[in-house]
Design a protein around this nucleic acid. Sequence first.
DNA 1: CTTGGAAAGTCAACAAGACTGACATAAGCT
DNA 2: AGCTTATGTCAGTCTTGTTGACTTTCCAAG
Lengths: 165, 165
Amino acid sequence: MNDVGMGENLLFLTDEQLRQGIEAMFFAYRGFTADPDRILAGMAYGRAHHRAIHFINRALGTTVNNLLILLGVTKQSLNRVLRTLIEDGLVESRVGVTDKRERNLYLTEAGEALERQLSDAQRARMRAAYRAAGPQAVAGFRQVLEAMMDPEMRRKHHALREAGQ
Amino acid sequence: MNDVGMGENLLFLTDEQLRQGIEAMFFAYRGFTADPDRILAGMAYGRAHHRAIHFINRALGTTVNNLLILLGVTKQSLNRVLRTLIEDGLVESRVGVTDKRERNLYLTEAGEALERQLSDAQRARMRAAYRAAGPQAVAGFRQVLEAMMDPEMRRKHHALREAGQ
DNA sequence: CTTGGAAAGTCAACAAGACTGACATAAGCT
DNA sequence: AGCTTATGTCAGTCTTGTTGACTTTCCAAG
C-alpha cells in the first residue's frame, strides 16, 4: 500500500474523525431512546423499567443477580424498579427450582404486551436506520459497537445472542 | 436479484437482528461513557459536566440557548451545571456583543485541560474500536448512527462537523 | 417613543434513578 | 455449626432531569 492509500485509510483515526464519531454516538443514542421514553412518559415508568422489561424478555427466567449485572446497576436500584413491576403485575418472580435462594423472573401477559409496545417503537427506528444505511453498513455498525464494549459485556451480549436465536 | 439473495440481504431486518442491534447499542454506549465517567467520579462533576465541556469546546462562543438545544436539556438543567463550571473557573461566560441577553461561552485554560483529559480517554476507546473494526466498518457505523438520529439533531451534528474541520 | 410581548438567563423546589451502607432472611456448602 | 451466597429492604445521598416564577434585555407595533 502506498503513502496516499495509507493516508486514505488512516483518515478515520484522526482526532477530528474520532470526535465526530463521539458526537454521532451521543446524538444517535438520544434518538435510540426517544420513542420508548415518549411512551413511558405517560405511565408511571421510566427508562429503567424499560431496560428491566427488555432483558427479562430476552433472558427468560433470569435471576435477579444476572439481571443486575446485565443492566450494570446495584441490586438496590434494580429492586426499586422490579418491585413496582411485580406489584403492577407485569413481572412474575418465581422461587428457583434447584436453588431456592434465587428468583427466576418472567414477564406476565401484561408485561409482554408492554414489552411489545416499547420494542415495536424502538425496532421501528432501528429498522428505518438499517434500511437507510444498507446491509454492509449494518455489518460495520455492529462490528464497531462490539469493539466498543467492555470485554465482559461483549461476552454477555454474545450469550444473549445465542439464546435469542 | 433472486430470492436467495433477497433473503440474505433482508436478514439484517429480522426482529432478532434488530433486537441484537438494540442490545449492542446499549452495551456499547455503556463502554463509550465508562472512561470519562471514571475520571469524573473522583471530581465533583458528572456526565452532564462532561457533555457541556465537550460542546463548549466544539462550538466556541456558543450561547446558552444553542448549547441546551445541542444537549437536549432544559435551560434550568444546563444552568446548574454551567454555574458550577463557571464558579470553578473552567468556563467563561461573556455577555453577548450584539445581543446583551445572550452569554457566549468559552473554556478557560483549566477547562481546556479537563476537556483534553476526558476527550483523550474517550477517543482512545473510540480509536481502538475503529482500528479493530477497520475503515469500511467505521463508514457503516457512521451511516447507521446518522440514520438513527432525529432529523433536527442530524442537522446540528452536520453543522458541528463543518465547524470542526 | 413608549409599551407590551418575546427571548435569554437565573433561582427554587421537586422527581427519577443512580449510589453507598447496614441489616435481615433464607438457603446452600464445608 | 458456621460461613457464604442470593435476595430483599430501609435510610440517606448525589446527579441530573423537570416545572414554575422571576429579572433583564431586546424588538416591534401602535
